[in-house]
Structures are given as C-alpha cells and as structure tokens.
C-alpha cells in the first residue's frame, strides 16, 4: 500500500511539474498569443480610457463582456456590431437612467470624449478573436 511518504512525493512532485507547465504556457500566451488574438497594437489612448471607465464604474457588475461579469444586463462583447456607436452613446446619460425593457441602467454623467472612449473600448473588444464566442444561434428568432 501507498505510504505517507509516497503520498507526499506525489503531492510535491505533481504540483511542481504542472506548475512549471502552466508557467510555460502562460509565457507563450502573453508573448505570442495575446498580442495577435486581441490586436494589442490597436489599444490606443481612447481604448485605454474606455477600459478605465469600464473598470471604475463596474459595468461588469450588471453586464458580461467576453462572457465575464453579472447576468442582469446584456452581453456586450458584440454590442458595437449589433447596435453601432450612436445607440451605445444614448444609453449613458439618459435622464433617470436608461430603462429599455424594465431593467434599470445607472444614469451616468459622461463627457462626449468619455462616451467615445467607451465606444472605442467596446469596438476593440468586439474585434478580438475569442475562439467563436459568443456562439451563433442556430435560428434567429429576433432578426
């Protein structure tokens, strides 16, 4: 039967091996993968400001982006493609808060530049290669 010492070796050895593989894959992902998959060269000051606003307002606390966030409000990865820039911009400073289908968005007070920045960020996200996410529905009842 397995002894306590062997069990310990299994734990330490296995952890070390898989940790090293993980680090190797991480380096490859960051160096070779991410720049290509996310068009990192297109991250300019506008996209950066947009991401900062996305972050500091916790938009992810209602929406998902790349499928991550909360499930109260729509997935926004492809919102630029779906709605276009003008529609997106009207949602922010809507008096009393944008309330399209009975769910309330927070009323913001963004400047024109900030709105543009958020649009630029959402456009950048939508152009990233996400391995096929979000999936294409088999039927399009709403088109």
């Amino acid at each position: 039967m397995l002894s306590k010492k062997q069990a310990k070796m299994f734990f330490l050895g296995g952890t070390a091996v898989f940790f090293l593989i993980f680090i190797g894959m991480t380096v490859d992902t960051l160096v070779n993968g991410v720049p290509k998959y996310t068009h990192a060269s297109q991250i300019d000051d506008q996209v950066r400001l947009g991401r900062h606003l996305w972050d500091s307002n916790n938009c992810m606390g209602c929406h998902t982006i790349m499928g991550e966030g909360a499930y109260y409000a729509p997935e926004l990865t492809k919102v630029y493609e779906r709605r276009g820039p003008e529609y997106i911009k009207t949602t922010f400073n809507f008096p009393g808060g944008w309330r399209p289908n009975g769910r309330n968005m927070v009323e913001y007070n963004f400047t024109e530049q900030e709105k543009e920045a958020l649009v630029a960020f959402l456009k950048w996200v939508g152009e990233s290669d996400l391995n096929g996410f979000p999936p294409k529905p088999s039927v399009q009842l709403d088109k």
């Binding site: 734990f11 296995g14 952890t15 898989f18 940790f19 593989i21 993980f22 894959m25 490859d28 992902t29 070779n32 993968g33 991410v34 998959y37 996310t38 790349m66 499928g67 991550e68 990233s128 290669d129 996400l130 391995n131 096929g132 996410f133």
Partner: peptide, 19 residues
C-alpha cells in the same frame, strides 16, 4: 493541483488567448 492548475484553462476558452 494535478488537475486544478492546468484546469485554469476552463476560464481561458473565450477571452482572447490561443486555442
């Protein structure tokens, strides 16, 4: 750890990293 470390990959499917 044998499964969980590389299992992190299940959060990397669709966030803009290699296949």
């Amino acid at each position: 750890f044998l499964s969980g470390i590389l299992g992190t990959g299940h959060h990397y499917y669709f966030i803009g990293v290699p296949k």
